[in-house]
């Protein structure tokens, strides 16, 4: 009986320390030291919040850099992947549908040079990054839709590339939110 009472007292005391003090102190530190990242790396256009740099938004329309396919339709409130097995007919159908979309949107591409990451869904459904080459592949389409020069767009992509860390970890990639944010700013600058 004494043991049970002690177990209950210990539960409340440790829940207070570990379940309240620790995370609340963490929030305080985050707010003081890392005001940008601790609040979710929010992306602003002017004074309005237009998303988070880390969460892929649904960029529909040919004038934007498209993120990877999402099994949850970029639902920020419901992350997840397709969970399709490699042998599943559903996976084949999904990839074929994605290939059709990509080829239709980017006539300059052929099936042989589409990279897997642009037709296979991401794990979170919110992957904000695309491979460097995938960004370059989208340039002709965006140039046509926006009237911006391909050289400028290429420069934009190159200036945002994230190289593998230590030369070992990751692939050369770009964040679509950063690219599209820069596109939006440039368009505003042109007054169009």
């Amino acid at each position: 009986m004494i043991n049970l009472l002690r177990a209950i007292r210990f539960t409340f005391a440790s829940a207070f320390v570990l379940g309240l003090l620790y995370p609340l102190f963490g929030c305080l530190i985050g707010w003081l030291l890392f005001p940008f990242s601790s609040q979710g790396s929010l992306m602003k256009a002017g004074r309005e919040i237009v998303g988070s740099y880390l969460i892929a938004a649904p960029y529909k329309g040919p004038e934007w850099f498209a993120p990877r396919p999402s099994a949850v339709n970029y639902n920020g409130d419901g992350s997840g992947g397709s969970n399709d097995a490699p042998t599943s007919p559903a996976l084949l159908q999904e990839v074929q549908a994605n290939m059709r979309d990509v080829l239709k949107a980017n006539p300059s591409l052929s099936a042989q040079n589409i990279s897997p990451s642009m037709v296979e869904s991401s794990a979170s459904g919110l992957d904000p990054d695309i491979e460097f080459q995938d960004a370059l592949d989208q340039i002709p389409r965006i140039a046509k839709a926006t009237g911006m020069s391909e050289a400028w767009l290429r420069h934009l992509v190159e200036s945002h590339v994230i190289e593998p860390r230590l030369g070992l970890y990751g692939v050369p990639m770009v964040n679509v939110n950063e690219l599209n944010h820069a596109l939006a700013q440039a368009r505003k600058g042109n007054g169009s």
């Binding site: 399709d84 099936a111 897997p116 990451s117 296979e120 869904s121 991401s122 992957d127 990054d129 491979e131």
Partner: peptide, 15 residues
């Protein structure tokens, strides 16, 4: 189908 490269279904590019 013509898709060559690593299995990226259910994976994230950044890692």
């Amino acid at each position: 189908l013509g898709i060559h490269g690593p299995n990226m279904e259910g994976k994230e590019v950044r890692f």
